[in-house]
């Protein structure tokens, strides 16, 4: 092959390798940036309807106080369905090896918080009682997910 052809092929080959790696890295980044840790609070979005209709005043938001083994407890406003667990797809991520990837789900209904176990290995308890099915959690009650304690505030 003439020298110039060899060099063009060299550049093309290197370019194809780096193109491959580049798109792979981009796909990975998109994947990691994918699901947001918390579902969007749609209710707080201003209404786009004409006439300046005022959205109904939101009630005092309920919050979950999440206490893991280490560090200060974190407060998570609860507005919708939130899966808790240590998987990448969990809405509330907890670094707790005794929990499952998608351990349990919290949701808000009738002004109260409800929790349901998602078939986790170690189960879920409310104030020490293992739950079966969707269970109501009143303000001040504590849910245990693995070794993590979640208190409704």
């Amino acid at each position: 092959m003439p020298m110039i052809a060899v060099n063009i092929v060299k550049i093309l080959f290197a370019a194809s390798l780096y193109g491959f790696l580049f798109f792979l890295a981009r796909a990975m980044r998109a994947h990691l940036a994918g699901p947001a840790p918390l579902a969007k609070p749609f209710r707080d979005e201003p209404s786009r309807h004409a006439g300046g209709a005022v959205p109904p005043p939101s009630p005092e938001p309920l919050r979950l106080e999440v206490t893991t083994g280490e560090g200060a407890p974190s407060l998570v406003p609860i507005t919708d369905r939130h899966v808790i667990g240590r998987g990448a797809t969990a809405d509330i991520f907890i670094d707790d090896e005794y929990s499952s990837a998608r351990h349990a789900v919290f949701d808000v209904a009738e002004g109260a918080v409800w929790v349901e176990d998602l078939g986790s290995t170690n189960g879920t308890t409310v104030d020490g009682t293992r739950i079966i099915g969707r269970t109501r959690v009143g303000v001040g009650m504590t849910v245990e997910v693995g070794s993590t304690r979640v208190t409704v505030r």
Partner: peptide, 15 residues
Amino acid sequence: TGLAGGFAVLAAFGF
């Protein structure tokens, strides 16, 4: 494939 090829191999392993 030069340093370019070597880096690509190492990058793939890093990945």
